[in-house]
Amino acid sequence: MTMTIRNLTRRFGQTEVLRGIDLTVEKGELVALLGPSGSGKTTLLRIISGLDWPDAGQLTVAGGDWLAKKAEERRTGFVFQHYALFPHMKVRDNIAFGLTVLPRDRRPPPVQIRARVAELLQFLQIPHLADRYPSELSGGQRQRVALGRALAIDPEVLLLDEPFGALDAQVRRDLRRWLREVHDATGTTTIFVTHDQEEAFELADRVVVMGAGQIEQIGRPDEIYDHPASPFTARFLGLTVEIPVNLRAGRIEAPGLDGSALSRRAMADGPATLFLRPSDITPVPDPEGAFRITEAVSTGALLRLRLEGPADCIAEAELPRRAGVPGLIPGQRVRLRPEAGQIFPGGPGPVQAAAVPSLKTKESLQ
């Protein structure tokens, strides 16, 4: 079962919320739609579920036209951020609900429904909650019940809209690991919406980065982390330091910048912008350095530096406090050595991107 989306558009009045979305999701994949609020990711999820309809485009599953089907005909399981459990129903009845409202010719007999609910309660590790009401559950428990209700109908596609957004940080981390285990055990094709980069990268087989109603980049988590394809993606993924540079013979040049750790690129000479994460910058004390430390703040584990450079260039660097680099105090002049980054040729909003491979592994930056 392959889901194929072609040139999907959606407008609300004069606002184009989705602008020509093209996406293919393979059977058994877990795909994250990652982006800021207003990027169109929830609208896309609602169209897939049948809760909303596009103005143009195609949506096919296993070759069949899903836009010709009503929501109840699509066999999608939908899990909302705020659970949407029925407060007057016990846990076992919430899980059974989707089966009990199926058309008569597709509805399992009561004995099979009870068996399916018992199976899911055990699978989700909540059999002891079967006779409780939603008000008697924690947030994490409610989310497990919501997932059980979605899985009860054996959906072709499982859709999750910010499923952990209402939970505290530790519960989110625990449920992320648990959800990945559930997905691997069931093999259900899953698409989930999130604005949380860590959540998307930890859970997904592939990440779809969305911005302003369009897809900016699709790839495996490490690919997107190491090689963002546009300035939008770079900024969204934490490459918040932008330094104007010149490219000459594939090398970057800028006052106070030591680009020796970055590989040579096959790019045309000329102005460009170097995008960096604060953790990718090594400040090196240098009396002749073009950058000056204006602020140094310790968070306990990290030392965060604010630096000012030529042409009002502002940069931030972040390094382990216990690294013990001497001289990194306000007023100290330094040169900056980027360890990894991304170069976009030209001025703001360039179309093309060239990756700068890192000398560090991803793990060493976390």
Rank of each mutant, 00 (worst) to 15 (best):
N7D: 12
T9V: 14
R11E: 04
G20H: 09
D22P: 01
G28C: 03
V31T: 09
L34E: 08
K41M: 03
T42Y: 02
T43D: 06
L45P: 04
I47P: 02
L51H: 09
D52R: 01
V61T: 11
A71S: 15
R75D: 15
G77F: 09
F78T: 07
Q81L: 05
H82N: 12
H88K: 06
K90S: 03
V91L: 11
D93L: 06
G98T: 05
L99P: 00
R104V: 10
R107P: 02
Q112W: 13
I126F: 10
L129N: 03
Y133S: 01
L137A: 06
L147V: 10
L147C: 02
E162R: 13
G165Q: 02
G165E: 06
A166N: 07
D174V: 12
L175E: 02
E181I: 10
T188G: 03
I191S: 01
F192V: 10
F201T: 06
D205P: 08
R206Q: 15
R206K: 14
V208S: 07
G211Y: 03
Q217R: 06
G219F: 09
Y225F: 15
Y225K: 10
P231S: 09
V241R: 00
A249C: 09
E253H: 14
L257I: 15
D258C: 04
G270M: 10
P271Q: 08
L274P: 03
D280P: 00
P283N: 07
V284K: 00
I293Y: 00
E295Y: 10
A296N: 11
S298T: 04
S298V: 09
G300N: 04
L303N: 03
L303S: 05
L305V: 02
P310G: 00
A317D: 01
E318T: 15
L319K: 08
R321L: 15
P330W: 14
G331S: 13
G341F: 08
Q342G: 08
I343V: 15
I343W: 01
P348I: 09
S358M: 07
L359T: 14
